Simulated scan of single mutants.
Amino acid sequence: MRAFVIAGTIAAAVWQAGPAAAGSNEYVFSLSWQPAFCETRPQKTECKSMTPDRYDAANVVLHGLWPQGAQFCGVPAYIVALDNDPGRWLDMPEVAMKPETRQELATYMPGVASGLHLHEWYKHGTCSGLSPDGYFGLSVTLAKSAATASFGKLLHGSVGATITGQQLCEALARDYGDKASQLVKLIVKNGTFSEIRFTLQADADKTTALNATHMLPMGGARCSTTPIRIDAAGN
């Protein structure tokens, strides 16, 4: 069971992780392109504060790491109800984690400003078999790996310009082998790059890595010559 402590109001509550859930053998790892996200949600706190020189303006950032097969493990009904309303994510109890974990998370998951980390923990992290520090630490490690991979560098170097699916597939192949285009799901909305997802196979100790030996087939990327815009901040 998970335990939680209520201190004054819901907003002041702190979630303490109890015994871990069993965890999952498969995770979907999702990375977003924040300028494209902010085009559709400019009212978000993290979008109002975005500047062209901020990390998330020019690098893929963490959307989530989602254990497959379960959600909201041991989470009380009132928290699930709050989670169902994105406007109330910050009303959910804060998750206890080390200050350094939270500081890194705020960089690699800018949605922390709007409570995205709380949504991700309660809906997905509680089913990971990991502590909050373990779950978010692993998520950040994967996000860092992606940003420094060939495909992450391609996106970083193409801010405000266009690339093709073929270019992206070639970069993925350099990172993860010739079949890499089959191992991702590429989300492009109205010609603009929005998100990329991987399905990762966990090791026996429930950790994952962003490499070909851990990846399972997904929807695949279209390796075509169709232009894909890489939005810049404020576009």
Rank of each mutant, 00 (worst) to 15 (best):
F72P: 00
Q201C: 10
P110A: 04
D205T: 05
A17T: 11
G115W: 00
T192R: 15
C223M: 09
E46V: 10
A17M: 10
D91C: 01
H63G: 04
L210N: 03
A20Q: 09
L62A: 03
A12R: 14
W33L: 01
T101Q: 02
S128Y: 03
L31R: 04
V75P: 01
P52L: 03
A96G: 08
G69W: 05
A161D: 12
V75R: 08
D83L: 10
E120S: 05
S24Y: 13
P110M: 02
A149Q: 10
A77D: 15
P67F: 04
A22C: 01
I6N: 10
A149G: 06
R174C: 02
D83Y: 06
A106T: 09
P99E: 11
S30H: 04
N84H: 12
Y176R: 07
A17R: 07
H124P: 05
G219M: 08
G18C: 06
Y176D: 10
R174W: 11
A221F: 01
D133G: 02
S150G: 00
F151R: 05
D85M: 00
F193W: 04
T40E: 09
T9Q: 14
A202S: 08
N190Q: 15
T40I: 15
H156M: 04
K144E: 13
V80S: 01
E170H: 11
Y122L: 07
A232D: 09
E170G: 03
F4M: 07
A233S: 05
G134H: 09
H119I: 04
I79T: 12
Y78H: 06
M1N: 07
A11T: 14
G234M: 06
I187F: 02
G23N: 03
R222K: 15
P132E: 12
A20T: 10
F72R: 02
F37G: 00
P52D: 12
F72N: 09
V80F: 00
P217M: 07
L90Q: 14
A161E: 08
P52M: 07
V112C: 10
D53T: 06
V5E: 15
A7M: 14
